[in-house]
Simulated scan of single mutants.
Amino acid sequence: MHTGAVGETAAELVVAAAAVVERGRLLVVSKHAAPDLFYLPGGKPEPGESLRAALERELREELGVAPSSATPLTEVRATAALEGVPMRLVVFRADLVGRPVPAAEIAALRWTGAAVSPELNLAPAVRNHVLPLVL
């Protein structure tokens, strides 16, 4: 189904996400719908919304914070871990104003280092593509 989001086709999910790194650790979150799977905070743009605006909105809604900076880091094409469909993940390196706290659909947040704990189930796009770039 086509949602009309920026750059999204009927077969591709487009997501703007934040790679937030503090003290050598990457911020990851899980949703109530899949509490055992961790991925980057962010989400899908609304119709007519830019990726940067979507990122800012999602960070406010999900974590109660705003980015003080957000610069393009990478773009990953992979299968979305939750939806199982092709995804274009546009990742911004971001610094936050405020302390992130889980809200809305976010069940939990964690900080992970380069040596990922075996019990932390990271989404493959985060583990294989983003983590090596930032840590």
Rank of each mutant, 00 (worst) to 15 (best):
A17C: 12
L82S: 08
A19K: 14
E49M: 06
R127I: 05
A54M: 06
P72H: 13
A115K: 15
V29A: 10
A34H: 15
L109P: 04
L59I: 11
T74C: 15
A80N: 14
S50L: 06
V6N: 09
A33N: 13
R60V: 15
F92W: 08
L63Y: 05
A78L: 00
P47E: 10
A114T: 06
R127M: 08
L63W: 07
E12C: 09
I106L: 04
R93H: 14
A104Q: 04
A78C: 03
G24S: 13
R25N: 12
V76W: 04
G48V: 06
L82A: 02
L133K: 02
M1Y: 13
A114F: 10
L13D: 02
A115E: 15
V116W: 09
R99Y: 07
T79L: 12
P45E: 08
V20F: 11
V134N: 09
L37P: 06
E75Q: 13
V101F: 10
V116P: 03
A81H: 01
L26M: 12
V14D: 08
A107V: 02
D36A: 15
N128P: 00
V116T: 14
G48L: 07
P100Q: 14
G24F: 14
G113R: 14
V29N: 01
H32F: 13
K44G: 13
V14P: 04
P124Y: 02
E56M: 07
E49K: 11
K44E: 14
E105V: 13
M1F: 11
A34P: 00
V14E: 10
L40M: 11
S30N: 10
A114S: 15
T3F: 05
L109R: 01
R110P: 08
I106E: 01
P124Q: 02
L82R: 06
R57P: 11
E83I: 05
N121H: 13
A16V: 04
L13C: 04
V20M: 11
G113I: 01
R127D: 00
L27H: 14
S50F: 06
V126W: 08
T71G: 10
D95C: 02
L122H: 11
P118Y: 05
F38L: 07
S30R: 04
V14R: 11
A81E: 03
V101W: 07
V14W: 08
A5S: 14
L63C: 06
V21A: 14
L37A: 09
L122C: 12
L133E: 02
E83V: 12
T79I: 12
P132W: 00
A18Y: 12
G43E: 04
G98I: 08
A54L: 09
D95S: 07
L55E: 08
L63S: 04
D36R: 15
R93A: 15
A17V: 12
A81V: 12
A80P: 01
L109T: 01
T74N: 02
A33C: 13
P47W: 06
R57D: 05
L73R: 10
E12H: 09
T79E: 06
H32S: 05
V90T: 05
V15M: 12
K44F: 01
P47C: 07
A11S: 13
R77F: 03
G43A: 10
V85Q: 03
L27K: 15
H2L: 07
F92A: 06
